[in-house]
Nucleic acid binder design. Structure first.
Lengths: 335, 335
DNA sequence: CGCAAACGTTGAAACGATTCATTAATACGA
DNA sequence: TCGTATTAATGAATCGTTTCAACGTTTGCG
């Protein structure tokens, strides 16, 4: 049996369809008696408004598309949750697309979202798809870049200053008197890794006698971090770094596990350790981890706000919001 | 400027709207020459099919609603990813709703999804909302329960046998010769906690001389686990458990951190430790953690399959799929 | 009492696609 | 050459809303 339509309600209540619509959208325009009669019919028939038809007429949907690199990553799941909260506040829903670092899937979702006439797309792009996104905006779908630096004059964007984060972390190590700094890098194709390294480099250059070594991990995982840690333990004392800055918390936790287990190097006495992201596990690690906090929730919320801004004033110039990361000091640098 | 419609394409190509529709949906019905002319116009005008209108006409959407308890929980984010993958295979998208254990938000999403005429709702319910869900199905929106035991004859469901998981974990500890078992419980309002305890109880009852103690944590977090660990360290040796089964991995990791840091009790020599969920961090803990693996990805995929099943044959009787969890042995019980 | 304003309700048009009965054009065989 | 298939293309109807000009009724005021 087909669900009841507004027409069914109208004939059941003995009024015109326009009146039912008014009851739903402008209750004040309808006389009390009529309104309650219509409401009764709605209840009796179990009528539920068909948002698809409403959207068609309005030419606008109530959904926002969100395309993330990896929903399994706490950074993005937290961001998604915040975006979804913010959207819910204005009665919208978030449709989630997980590109999984795959450019094909990314395009698939962009196509899907455009066909669905979402209000806008919040995207953390895999590759450079500026052209595709520009076409989107030209046809009326707003685009907001997330965790991706600057969309120039074309797109609004929200990101975190990773150079500044890298600087902050390294400066902290230097401030503790450490001079032999090492940066545990992930794959350099991630702009996050490159930027954090750049920040570290700058900090080291500012201090006479400080050196920076780059230890290259081939992944941003706990396992990769362990590999780096195991490598360190094998070295002779003189060549060891005394301050370690890792490209993210997973790497840092891996390094920590390796050192803790082998018990040859103490944290922070022998090596001070700083991570990045401040994931939940950082605070509750064996040695609570000093980290750089990214305001994930704020990023998600801001992305939605930037979109709302674009929607309410289509002529508004795109804005780029860049957040400053924050140093969170814990025992791993504070013995 | 409004995006181009099928009508614009038709007049640009000098054909009727029906022909454009046929080019899009049944290319064979259209002569080669006409088809290419239409395709040219589509490209030139940058036409993108309006899925909203299509859905209205079809009376069916291409979206699936997913309502989870907490997208920040790795269990659910992994599940969501799998569901989204499975949906993508059949050209559908997943709309995500995060209830955050809040019944009001849960209802909000149910309403929203029904108005959007999603094909079906996959839901991990906060409270007992059987009646609301029954109304949904009666109006044609399919419902699949996720990680919730048995929807009876009304709903299909997919879940994991937590009793069996608890039994498995405890049996393993007993098999190692441990006799003084303790279960680190989370809040008993979660059916997962109750079921896992029930399984543990059964296993202990099967072995003469074995005892089961319940240590009540007030949360399912690492921090709560630490509290339990700290409490254990303070005890005198005689009263200590030698086998510890935690309601989830977060608790287990907390306990592990406490014991590792204080170094009074060794894992697994003094206390063997088993967690639950087998989250990514379990394998890479200081002492790799033995755990009970839940097939999250499989759950997500199965939920989508159950939905597809209901959609393709509306008369099909609801099915309940229950997965068996699996024991993953690591160093924390295998010294 | 008469007129204007305010109020409530109506019903048709529109949104953009799909569907399908109908018509037009072409090909084929006798 | 004619009639019949076959193939293409047409365009109106439809999906379920919202919008809005038009209309009828009531109210208020002089």
């Amino acid at each position: 049996m087909r669900p009841a339509s507004i027409k069914d309600v109208a004939s059941h209540a003995g009024v015109a369809v326009g009146t039912v619509s008014n009851v739903l959208n402008y209750p004040d325009r309808v006389a009390d008696k009529t309104r309650s009669r219509v409401l009764d019919s709605i209840a009796e028939l179990g009528f539920v408004r068909n948002d698809v038809a409403r959207q068609l007429r309005a030419g606008q949907s109530r959904t926002i598309g969100l395309i993330v690199l990896d929903i399994g990553n706490p950074f993005f799941s937290s961001l998604a949750r915040a975006a979804e909260d913010a959207a819910a506040d204005s009665g919208n829903a978030v449709v989630l697309g997980n590109s999984g670092h795959d450019a094909t899937r990314e395009l698939h979702y962009i196509d899907l979202f455009e066909e669905q006439r979402v209000q806008g797309v919040l995207i953390s792009p895999v590759a450079d798809i500026t052209e595709r996104l520009r076409a989107l905006t030209q046809r009326g779908t707003k685009v907001i870049l997330v965790d991706s630096p600057a969309g120039g004059d074309t797109f609004s964007s929200v990101s975190v200053d990773d150079v500044s984060g890298g600087y902050l972390a390294t400066k902290h190590l230097l401030g503790l008197g450490r001079r032999r700094i090492a940066f545990v890098a992930g794959p350099q194709r991630f702009h996050q890794v490159r930027d954090r390294l750049a920040g570290a480099t700058r900090a080291v250059e500012e201090v006479a006698g400080a050196t920076l070594e780059v230890l290259q991990a081939d992944d941003l995982t706990v396992l990769a971090g362990r590999g780096i840690g195991d490598g360190l333990v094998g070295r002779d004392r003189g060549s060891l770094p005394d301050g370690l800055f890792c490209a993210n918390d997973l790497l840092a936790l891996g390094v920590m596990q390796s050192l803790t287990m082998l018990r040859t190097l103490r944290i922070p006495e022998d090596v001070a350790l700083v991570g990045y992201d401040d994931i939940d596990f950082a605070a509750s690690a064996v040695v609570p981890l000093t980290s750089i906090r990214q305001p994930t929730a704020l990023i998600g919320r801001t992305a939605v706000e930037l979109l709302t801004e674009q929607l309410s004033d289509p002529a508004a110039r795109p804005r780029s919001v860049v957040f400053k990361p924050e140093l969170v000091v814990r025992a791993s640098t504070n013995g």
